[in-house]
Design a protein around this nucleic acid. Structure first.
Lengths: 189, 189
DNA sequence: GGACCCATGTAAATAGTTACATGATTGC
DNA sequence: GCAATCATGTAACTATTTACATGGGTCC
C-alpha cells in the first residue's frame, strides 16, 4: 500500500501531525499521491500499531493539541526497502482521457467545446503550478543533489501538463482540418 | 463513478459480454481506465438494475454461454450527458513518481539503479505499444474523424511514456554531472 | 454573525483487489 | 498431463470517499 510509504517518506525529514500530512496529500502540492484526512488518521494508527511510527502530544494554547508523529528505526528500514523496490507500471487512470476515447459520438461543436474547456483548465493548471508556492520547498534543500531531485520531481508535473496542452492543440487543429474539408466538399456538390 | 460510464461507452458501439469488457479494462489496451472482472460483473448488475443496460443469454456449444449486454435508451442518454460534462482534473497518482519524490535519501548508486531500471521499463512499454495490437482497432473506424480521434487517444499513451523517458534521461544526466563535480572536488583536495 | 483555519476523529458507503470456485475446449 | 482461453460468479478483504461531529481562534 503506497499511502503508508508516502507517509513514511514525509516523516523521514521531520515529524508531522495528521493535519500536516493531510495538507501534503490534498492535491494542491503535486505530491503524486492523494488522500483525505480520514484515510491519513487511520493509516497513522495502523503505522503506529505496526511500530513504524510513534507519536507524542503537543499541548497548544492557541489551537487544539496535536499529535506529532516520528519515524521509528523499523519505519526507516521499511522506507529504505520500499525506495529500492520496483514499483512496476501504475496504469493510467484519467477521467478526461476516458471521456476523450468515446468523444467521437458527439457533434463537431460539442467535441470542440469539450476540448476548448480542457485547454483552459490545463493552462490554468500550468499557471498555478509555475507561480505560487510550487517551487517554494526548494529553499529547504540541504545540498545540490537534493535541490536537483526536488526540482526534477516538480518539473515532471509541469512538463506533463504541457505535453497534454500540445496534444490537445494538435488534436483540435486536425479536427478543424477535417471539418473544413467536409464543408468544402459539401459546398462544391 | 467512471467505470459505469466507461462500460456505457464501450457498449455504445456494440453489445459485449462481461468477459469481453474485462479484456478492455485489463491495462494492455490503454483504455485509460482499469478494472478486474469481479468489478465489471458487479457494475453490469448495477447498470442492469438501474435500467441503463439489458442483456440476453447467448447459447454456445464450444464455449460457456455468455450474457450479451446492450445499451438502453436511458443508458445512451446517460452516456451523452457524461460525455458533455466536465470531469475536472484527475489528480496524478503514480507509485514510481511517489518513489522519486523521496529518492534523495538513497545513495548515488542506488538512485542510479532505480532510474536505470525505470528507463528499461519505459522503453519496453513504448516498444510494446508501438508494435503489437495497439493500433489494430483503427481499422474499424467508420469515418475519417473517428479514425483521427482513435489515433489521437492512442498517441497520448505513447507520447506520455516518451515524455517520461526524456525526463528520466535528463534527470540521470544532471545527477551524473553533480557526481562528477563532487569527485573532481574531492580528488583535488 | 459568518466563514475559514486549526486539529482530531467516527460511521457508513462505495470502489477496487485477491482468492476461491466451476467446467469444457484447445494447443504443446 | 499442464497451461491457457472461454465464461461466469461469490466471499472476503483493502482502499478511498463522503458525511457527520466537535470546538476554540481569527479575520472581515
Amino acid at each position: 500500500m503506497s499511502l503508508k510509504h508516502a507517509i513514511l517518506g514525509f516523516l523521514y525529514k521531520e515529524p508531522l501531525s495528521g493535519y500536516d500530512l493531510s495538507k501534503m496529500f490534498d492535491g494542491s502540492r503535486t505530491s503524486y499521491w492523494t488522500a483525505t484526512h480520514t484515510q491519513i488518521y487511520r493509516t497513522l494508527n495502523e503505522l503506529n500499531e505496526s511500530g513504524m511510527v510513534y507519536c507524542w502530544i503537543i499541548q497548544q494554547e492557541q489551537s487544539p493539541n496535536k499529535k506529532n508523529y516520528h519515524l521509528t528505526e523499523k519505519g526507516r528500514e521499511e522506507l529504505f526497502k520500499w525506495l529500492k523496490s520496483d514499483q512496476g507500471m501504475t496504469p493510467i487512470k484519467d477521467k478526461f482521457l476516458l471521456q476523450m476515447s468515446f468523444i467521437n459520438i458527439l457533434s463537431e461543436q460539442e467535441i470542440d467545446e469539450v476540448i476548448n474547456n480542457r485547454i483552459k483548465r490545463i493552462k490554468n493548471q500550468i499557471d498555478s503550478l509555475r507561480c505560487g508556492d510550487y517551487y517554494k520547498g526548494l529553499k529547504y534543500a540541504k545540498n545540490e543533489r537534493e535541490r536537483l531531485l526536488m526540482y526534477t520531481a516538480l518539473e515532471y508535473g509541469v512538463g506533463l501538463y504541457e505535453f497534454e496542452l500540445q496534444w490537445l492543440k494538435s488534436c483540435r487543429a486536425k479536427l478543424d482540418n477535417i471539418n473544413r474539408l467536409n464543408e468544402y466538399n459539401s459546398d462544391s456538390e
